[in-house]
């Protein structure tokens, strides 16, 4: 990677699951919509690789955190819609807490209060 201004950020290992779960909190969505949503919300900083998204969706499904059903999309095509299950909701809460703790810890280390002055 060239050291150019961050047009995109590589996802940290394991964060994709969290992002997907969080996105589904708004309601059922298909894979493409999830990817677009994350990109849009992150101001295009996070680029979701299709190659990681679909295995991740299946992984979450295998864990029982999300459910999938085939439904007609807005354009009338068959698409696979994912929705959050209640264990998924719990998992999201737990993961989010973890992430926030982690982020806070990182912040504390990278920007100690003494440095701010």
């Amino acid at each position: 990677m060239k050291p150019s201004p961050p047009s995109r950020v590589d996802l940290l290992q394991g964060t994709l699951d969290l992002l997907v779960l969080r996105t589904l909190l708004f309601g059922p969505a298909h894979g493409h919509a999830i990817a677009k949503h994350i990109q849009a919300v992150s101001e295009e900083l996070l680029q979701i690789e299709t190659g990681s998204l679909y295995p991740a969706l299946h992984r979450l499904e295998a864990q029982g955190w999300i459910d999938a059903t085939w439904e007609k999309s807005e354009k009338g095509k068959r698409a696979k819609y994912y929705r959050l299950t209640s264990p998924g909701r719990k998992h999201l809460v737990a993961e989010r807490m973890k992430w926030e703790t982690f982020a806070r810890a990182m912040g504390l280390v990278l920007k100690p209060t003494g440095e701010e002055a």
């Binding site: 894979g31 493409h32 299709t50 068959r78």
Partner: peptide, 12 residues
């Protein structure tokens, strides 16, 4: 099904 989902993704 996965193939179909990917196909759908491609079309989108």
């Amino acid at each position: 099904e996965l193939r179909e989902a990917l196909e759908f993704h491609l079309e989108e």
